[in-house]
């Protein structure tokens, strides 16, 4: 008798777990497919970069030209950014290309600002949880990249090789 109850309980428990997985799955599908078309979203992300306040845009990068900072920034990029922006920063379905003119010609302060504040409604999280020097190291790395293809959207297998201007 006890065994029958235990089996029923286990079955009920499994059913509940299954329901949770199902509901979460459907929720995820809806959440993901309900987003704006990719190209519009990407343009809006670049526009957000242009929206950095003047004061923020004028901030100087304390690590400008520091090869150690480029290497450290490359490491941080690989850990935190490459998943969305691609290993070579050329962009993926989820993150814009950082080799585009809008990014490469942005001031270090504007890049730092966007990294700090994210573009929350367009899917880019805030990265202020990284200490300020680490965010500047990422900016230093980004500005060391040479844009090869302006509209590159392919996911790259090799990490970007940083080089200084």
């Amino acid at each position: 008798m006890k065994l029958i109850f235990a089996r029923r309980r286990a079955r009920r428990c499994l059913r509940n777990v299954g329901n949770v997985v199902f509901v979460l799955g459907v929720g995820l599908s809806l959440a993901q497919t309900g987003e704006a078309p990719a190209h519009k979203s990407k343009e809006a992300a670049y526009a957000a970069l242009a929206g950095a306040p003047e004061k923020a845009r004028e901030r100087k990068n304390p690590f400008a030209g520091d090869p150690q900072a480029v290497a450290a920034g490359g490491k941080l990029f690989e850990q935190h950014c490459a998943e969305c922006h691609g290993a070579k920063a050329g962009g993926t379905r989820h993150g814009v290309s950082l080799l585009r003119e809008e990014v490469q010609q942005a001031t270090p302060g504007a890049l730092f600002w966007i990294l700090t504040n994210g573009v929350v409604l367009r899917g880019m999280p805030v990265w202020s949880k990284l200490p300020e020097p680490e965010r500047w190291q990422i900016v230093t790395f980004l500005q060391s990249l040479h844009p090869r293809s302006v509209n590159s959207t392919s996911e790259n297998s090799q990490p970007a090789k940083p080089s200084l201007h």
Binding site: L24, G25, V26, L28, Q32
Partner: peptide, 16 residues
């Protein structure tokens, strides 16, 4: 586990 959501969406036949 990054990219988990994308794989779940694929599972349900959606386009990530």
């Amino acid at each position: 586990f990054s990219g988990f959501g994308e794989m779940v969406v694929r599972l349900f036949g959606g386009r990530p």
